[in-house]
Design a protein around this nucleic acid. Structure first.
Length: 423
RNA sequence: GGGCGGGUGGCAGAGUGGUUGAAUGCACCAGUCUUGAAAACUGGCAUAGGUGUAAGUCUAUCGGGGGUUCGAAUCCCUCCCCGCCCGCCA
């Protein structure tokens, strides 16, 4: 959510930053509506003040037994109420319309974010590791998994349709091993508090993190009215919603291993093969709640925490900073981590670390006590640490052997019960 | 799912239609006293918004929404949450 006061004071700045994300001028219609609301509100409030004043006098007149005066005042109040009802309805309607406008506008990028229209303008920050050469044609993860008899898309399709998979045996175990390894790293060494949050949330929680109201079609909704979380970012960030936390308690760092549910509306035909794009996948998420002055440093730290997973798995990757045109709705700055996939001969996204500034905090009213009588909005950050399904894909492809077996990365062997090769 | 009881300021807890934005206690802030602290005493202490250079002033808010009334924390409806009992159930 955007600060209407800030827009009033500096409309050009907002328009310029929104323009970087490909939006037309917004401030004019926002401020026109805002002015209209304030004008109408004045009328309503004056009528309300008159009503309150007369009502109190009625009480006094009644106490004195002055029926005539009371009746006269009642007529006054009735007049005021007509104004309140008519103008009040207009104010409510305009306020809702303004709120809808603001809620649908994306966050504004930080000044230091590279400019550009789309992913072609993203900037590679650094690379780690070197893709190893193969003296055979590397297979795709789904070919490998199916050949092993441990990755079954057809069976999943029978019960759930496309974009689902049944893992079994050692691949199922590998999925669990990866998640456990990531959780141990993030909670044990990196200081994130391990959390088991709800997977079903209300609309207001999704509104808080920015998935609603604009992206409802990407979500699954239950008959009871809950939504399935598309990422644990929703559950973990909403931990601080509608609260005022002590400044000394910051930063808060949370991690959780959860399934994520995405309808993938609009991505028909993309990545239809394999496990890259599923309706349901597991992810270990990282969320930080920090003071505004700490969010840039925390962002770098979080990126490092996510990178560490790939380093220990010895998977080659690169880090890309998203340009203004490629930023997600709620983000002010984002680093993507892309892992090397030999079968595709390219890097594919496996993590996205975003600093949302106070954007989500405003939407969910999450503040910290800066000083007595001075509560300020926190900054929120989220990142994948990592997407488990895509990490499994990367392990299969990068650790494949010519005979179709998979060598288990050293750090995962203890989590695999000592198994060193999947065959 | 059924029944009963609750939801009031940072916390505890009064308040069942008329200067109640809300008693009281605790916590917190400032001051007096003290070498310092504690205790005691004095004062202050909710949030959001409109308006104003400012002092100020006005409006809204007692879980959310709606209603009754000249007037609602108080009455009615509805939803949510918490507690207890029953039923069902991993």
């Amino acid at each position: 959510m955007h600060d209407i006061k800030a827009i009033r004071e500096n409309p050009d700045y907002y328009d310029k930053r929104w323009a970087k994300r490909g939006l037309e001028v917004q401030s004019k219609k926002i401020l026109d509506r805002d002015a209209l609301i304030r004008k109408a509100m004045n009328v309503v409030q004056e009528a309300e003040a008159a009503r309150n004043k007369s009502s109190k006098l009625i009480g006094q007149a009644m106490a004195k037994g002055d029926k005539e005066e009371a009746e006269r005042l009642k007529a006054e109040v009735a007049g005021a109420k007509n104004v309140i009802a008519a103008m009040g309805a207009q104010v409510d309607g305009e306020k809702a319309a303004l709120n809808d406008m603001l809620a649908a506008l994306p966050n504004i990028p930080f000044e230091n974010v590279p400019e550009g229209d789309d992913e072609d303008s993203n900037i590679e920050q650094h690379k780690w590791g070197t893709p190893k050469g193969y003296n055979f044609e590397p297979k795709s993860h789904d070919d490998l998994g199916e050949a092993l008899g441990m990755m079954d898309f057809e069976t999943a399709a029978k019960m759930s349709g496309s974009r689902f998979v049944v893992l079994s045996g050692l691949l199922s175990r590998l999925d669990r091993a990866l998640a456990a390894f990531m959780l141990d790293l993030q909670s044990g060494e990196n200081g994130y508090t391990e959390t088991t949050p709800p997977f079903l949330v209300w609309d207001k929680a999704l509104y808080g993190t920015g998935q609603l109201p604009k992206f409802e079609e990407d979500l699954y909704k239950t008959t009871a009215g809950h939504y399935l979380i598309p990422t644990a970012e929703v559950s973990l960030t909403n931990i601080v919603r509608e609260s005022i936390v002590d400044a000394e308690s910051l930063p808060h760092r949370y991690t959780a291993h959860t399934p994520c549910f995405r309808s993938e509306a609009g991505s028909a035909g993309r990545d239809t093969k394999g496990m890259i794009r599923q309706h349901q996948f597991n992810k270990v998420e990282l969320v930080s709640i920090v003071k505004p002055e700490d969010s840039e440093a925390e962002h770098k730290r979080m990126l490092g925490c996510a990178e560490e997973v790939l380093k220990r798995l010895k998977l080659p990757y690169r880090v890309v900073e998203l340009c203004t045109g490629d930023l997600g709705f709620g983000a002010r700055r984002t680093f993507d981590i892309e892992v090397w996939l030999p079968s595709q001969d390219t890097y594919r996204e496996i993590s996205s670390c975003s600093n949302c500034g106070d954007f989500q905090a405003r939407r969910m009213n999450a503040r910290y006590k800066h000083a007595a009588k001075d509560n300020r909005f926190v900054h929120t950050l989220n990142g994948s640490g990592l997407a488990v399904g895509r990490t499994l894909v990367a392990v299969l492809e990068n650790y494949q052997n010519e005979d179709g077996s998979i060598t288990v990365p050293d750090v995962l062997v203890p989590y695999m019960g000592g198994v060193t090769v999947i065959k």
